[in-house]
Design a protein around this nucleic acid. Structure first.
Length: 603
RNA sequence: GGGGGUGUGGUGUAGCGGCCUAACAUAUUGCCCUGUCAAGGCAAAGACCGCGGGUUCGAAUCCCGUCAUCCCCGCCA
């Protein structure tokens, strides 16, 4: 080894030892005859001091060294002189007096700071990702990701799970996300698809009797990207046999609780995790992945709405549309002009989500004053009292009225909650509010295609008692599905699967799959189901999102070592790139000329 | 597929029709400096303002197009 210690571990008790450190020049402070070098590796920073008078050779090398040079330093650890301690550094009580310095490598001036936290344009960071990853913040994120995965593996191993790899080169499936295609060289005109998830294989592993499988699996989806979505991402994929919904949920909850408490450094808001039915989540929060770190619930006041004098509300209620009110704490504690402007902004937002307007009542800070707002005059004093009582409103609060079709009410509730929470800074990033959402509808009516679509995926089992509605009222069937939401993100989702071929065929038929076609696509699975399948179920976590929340980062690129841009490009290696004609010929591909992008464009 | 933001020395920003011969900070280079740790002092170098076109007497600034990137909607079983 070229080092005896890391740059983060020397303490007072090491004083007197001769050590060898190796790392990067974090900073150099040249005072002429005396040079200080902060030597950095991923464990920390240690100050090296070089005295020209006592060691001219080392001084010369130190003098020639620049930021990010790679040095090896041998010297004596000593307590720093009185008054020169640096409490900012973990190693700040000691320093290494250089006896010998070797320049293991020089470095060009880096394109951005390694040692200083500063916003750098993401393009630049991606272009020099290997330098970006040298920055402490990124190193912490990557280490946190490793610790998360290590913890999961150890935990599941102790629970008698085994990790099994499944193919990445899979085949196209008709349902689901757009896939990346891989042409076959042996089979002209045929293609593999990169696996969107190990879903089918993990179910087959249950058929094979492994009972407890997991995998930290790379998945691929060729859909448009977002801050929380990458074309390749990582799932913790897990499947268990002979279980019911509750078994999977409690195992996952125990694992997640332990993981959060031992690895993330974050605080759990709910222990045990909150549980909401899909319907409850939508009614109160307008989302199936609500952020529960704050209130801002939509409270149903349809009965009051029907009785008040507000014509729109009255007619909405008559048409069976709900009336909801959302209490925004303290939002009315501003001047009348500002309040009107803010309310107008919120109304614009609501309109964007499909609403026709957004009425409000502002409760004055001084209780003697009249309530304000365009909706105020339509409610009697008793009705206002009732509103205040039901919402728990305080002086200075703002009450927003949301009324439309359920779909619109949900959308407006969601967007208002997200926007207000962001504006009012309600989401404490140190708190993780995990919440199970369950009892999703099994299928949803697709108006465009005039057919039923699975709301999770087509292997999800219906709640057994709901199978009776299969033919009469499919929309009434609930799926044995469970999602785990956290701080407004979906971090995991799973279900108990169908384990009988006949039921699977009925579902395929229901969702409009031509049975012959379905047999072609899923024949292997249906066939497997005839050889004794255990009841089984599982879950898949979005590991990137979870680590993102643990790290307190705003997007998953910050916790992925080599991520891609929003157009799926890797700026560092310059992928994707054209393929040579010979390569294309081998895989029986010809590229249509007009589709080729002009290589000269841009830079 | 659609909407929006951003693009100015290496980096981060300012400038938003003429005062721009483009400012500031930092980094870089040179010199000085033996207790610094955001080291300090002095000096120097460094930008055809993403690219192309247009409007104008005059464009970093306004308009159109284009490229890149970020955010959002659609999409993501």
């Amino acid at each position: 080894m070229l080092k005896t210690h890391t740059c983060g571990e020397l303490r007072l008790e090491n004083a007197g030892q001769t050590v060898t450190l190796a790392g990067w020049v974090n900073r150099r402070r040249d005072q002429g005859g005396l040079i200080f070098i902060d030597l950095r590796d991923r464990w920390g920073v240690t100050q090296v001091v070089i005295d020209q008078a006592s060691n001219p050779d080392a001084h010369q090398i130190a003098s020639d060294s620049r930021s990010e040079f790679v040095l090896q330093v041998t010297g004596l650890v000593r307590r720093r002189p009185e008054g020169t301690d640096n409490p900012e550094l973990e190693t700040g009580l000691v320093e290494v007096v250089a006896d010998k310095i070797s320049q293991l490598n020089a470095s060009k001036t880096p394109p951005f700071y390694i040692h200083k936290e500063e916003k750098i344009e993401e393009v630049r960071r991606m272009e020099y990702r290997y330098l970006d990853l040298r920055r402490p913040r990124m190193q912490q994120n990557i280490i946190l990701r490793h610790r998360t995965m290590k913890f999961i593996r150890d935990y599941l191993d102790a629970q008698r799970f085994i990790e099994i790899e499944t193919p990445i080169l899979f085949k196209t499936t008709p349902e689901g996300a757009r896939e990346f295609l891989v042409p076959s060289r042996y089979h002209a005109g045929k293609f593999y698809a990169l696996a969107q998830s190990p879903q089918q294989f993990k179910q087959l592993l249950m058929v094979s009797g492994y009972e407890r499988y997991f995998q930290i699996a790379r998945c691929f989806r060729d859909e448009d990207l977002r801050g929380e979505r990458q074309p390749e991402f990582t799932q913790l994929d897990l499947e268990m046999s002979f279980v019911e919904r509750e078994d999977v949920m409690s195992l996952i909850e125990a694992l997640m609780t332990d993981l959060v408490e031992k690895v993330s450094g974050k605080q759990l808001l709910f222990k045990p995790f909150k549980r909401l039915t899909f319907r409850e989540a939508m009614e109160s929060y307008g989302s199936d992945k609500p952020d529960l770190r704050y209130g801002l619930e939509a409270i149903d006041i349809s009965d009051l709405g029907g009785k008040c004098a507000f014509p729109v509300l009255v007619s909405n209620v008559a048409e069976g549309k709900p009336v909801k009110v959302m209490r925004v704490p303290g939002a009315a504690k501003v001047s009348g002009t500002l309040l009107r402007k803010q309310a107008a902004d919120l109304e614009t937002l609501a309109r964007g989500a499909g609403a026709k307007g957004l009425a409000y009542i502002a409760l004055p800070e001084n209780e003697a004053e009249e309530v304000k707002g365009p909706a105020a005059k339509y409610f009697t004093v008793e009705q206002k009292m009732e509103l205040i009582q039901r919402t728990g409103a305080q002086p200075g609060d703002l009450l927003l009225f949301i009324s439309d079709t359920r779909k619109v009410v949900y959308a407006v509730t969601d967007i208002l909650r997200r926007t207000l929470a962001a504006q009012m800074n309600l989401g404490d990033p140190n708190i993780l509010a995990f919440c199970w959402v369950y009892d999703f509808p099994l299928v949803e009516w697709n108006e465009d295609e005039k057919r039923w679509d699975p709301s999770h995926h087509l292997f999800t089992a219906p709640v057994w008692d709901d199978i009776q509605y299969m033919d009469s009222d499919p929309g009434r069937m609930r799926g044995q599905q469970y999602d785990l939401a956290c701080n407004g993100y979906e971090v995991a989702g799973g279900s108990i699967r169908i384990h009988k071929a006949d039921l699977q065929e009925r579902i395929l038929k229901l969702i409009g799959q031509d049975l012959e076609h379905a047999r072609k696509m899923f024949g292997h699975l249906l066939e497997a189901f005839t050889y004794g399948v255990p009841p089984h179920g599982g879950i898949a976590w979005g590991l990137d999102r979870l680590v993102m929340l643990f790290a307190g980062e705003p997007n998953i690129r910050e916790v992925i070592a080599f991520p891609k841009t929003q157009t799926g490009a890797d700026i560092m290696v310059n992928a994707p790139s054209p393929a040579a004609a010979k390569q294309l010929a081998e895989v029986h591909i010809s590229v249509v000329e007009e589709d080729i992008e002009d290589e000269e464009k841009g830079s």
